[in-house]
């Protein structure tokens, strides 16, 4: 599996998608190949996909450290831990000073599974921002 295969699949999907979403893929050049995936209507929350030797990582950034209401930070963290397991397929993460939700798939996953993962991740991200807005400025 590599990001080009994923991009090809998602671009070819068009209206055939079983998740009801349309995907727009844009590879980002760098030391590690990253695929930026925008779901139509949700361009503000792109998903970044990278492929390593044994897993496929799908990441959506949520908010930065600066967006958190400072005296609610600890409470937010606790809520994140509590929410981590009920949230289907995705987990919370922190990358540098940004919080994120991500899903990791085995490298042997099918393209349909990846599509499903992306749709769920996007839904999760939107729900999380909605539900966590009390902690955000």
């Amino acid at each position: 599996m590599n990001i080009h295969k994923i991009a090809q699949y998602l671009n070819d999907l068009a209206d055939e998608s079983v998740t009801g979403h349309s995907f727009d893929c844009q590879p980002i050049a760098g030391e590690v190949d990253v695929l930026q995936i925008s779901i139509v209507g949700r361009e503000e929350l792109p998903i970044f996909v990278s492929v390593t030797d044994d897993q496929i990582l799908c990441i959506t950034y949520l908010w930065g450290e600066s967006e958190i209401v400072s005296d609610k930070r600890a409470e937010m963290m606790e809520t994140m831990l509590e929410m981590n397991m009920p949230m289907p397929l995705s987990s919370f993460a922190k990358i540098d000073d940004k919080y994120a939700v991500f899903g990791a798939l085995a490298i042997s996953s099918s393209l349909a599974e990846i599509e499903h993962e992306l749709a769920v991740l996007s839904d999760n991200a939107i729900d999380v921002i909605d539900d966590f807005s009390e902690y955000l400025v």
């Binding site: 590690v32 990278s50 990358i95 540098d96």
Partner: peptide
């Protein structure tokens, strides 16, 4: 994975 995420983040930020 750590390395990849680190590099990917750099690429995303640059982009």
């Amino acid at each position: 994975t750590t390395d990849s995420v680190h590099k990917a983040t750099a690429a995303i930020t640059d982009n």
